[in-house]
Amino acid sequence: MEKLKLSDKSRKFLDDLNVYLFSSGKKEEEIKDIVEELEAHLYEAELDGKPIEQIVGESPKQYMAMISKEMNIDYTAWAKYIPIIVFGVMAFMIIGDVLEGPLSYSLLQIIGTIVTCLLFIFGVFITFRYVSYHDLSKKVEFMMIILPISISMLLFILIQIVNRIYETPSVEIGGLGSILLGIIALILLIGMSLWGKTAVMLVVLIALHLPAILLSLTTLQEETQLISSIVITYIIIGLYFYGTFKKMKKEEKSV
């Protein structure tokens, strides 16, 4: 969508509104509708030299809440996103593990992963909602968004540690079954990447595993292999983000 020329203050308000409504679970088309309508209004108001307060009032927060109250919650979208994210994380795990040999997961790992994913989703949504609703500096915003991400990372690690200490019943999958599951997981990830129109998951997947596989074919020492594979992983991910960032900057300028 071509963006209209707006003041930074108006643009920030529209961005905040977008994130606030989305993280409140509202319908995507309805969000697009009202944001576009307000964008058009702000555009005309700015041409007439009106300040943004004359449109959204003294409290943009209150105004955002007023709009939110008139919109329906989109439960079907939630029913769609949650399994996609949970399966996505599991697919990621499965592909990594299949490369190491036949799969074996304990009950604790399976349930723990699902619960952590759910906590992660709600944590991120609540944080986004909070951040868009409150006037915070960019630094504080960043720290707050990092919080649920790091908590779920810690939880994932914690699950692995507890899993070594306590034994729970586990599911063992044979060689052929593992490979089959790995292929299903890969198809799922590719499908999600096409749907989300982003290659980020596939790039991270390749960056994590491909260097180690290729290096294991060389005659390099094991230590050298390990270190270089980690370095290559970071380089690939870094280059990908750098490229995406540059592309985004270019698109912003061309508008």
Binding site: E36, E37, E39, A40, H41, E44, E53, G57, M66, E70
Partner: peptide
């Protein structure tokens, strides 16, 4: 404040008191 009308319009549209249609304008946004 001018924005006050939008939540009202949203509700009136939901209650089917008004309908809306998007049209391109000669200059500027739809």
């Amino acid at each position: 404040s001018e924005g006050t009308i939008y939540p009202l319009l949203m509700r009136m549209e939901r209650e089917k008191l008004v309908t809306s249609v998007r049209k391109a304008s000669t200059a500027g946004p739809k």
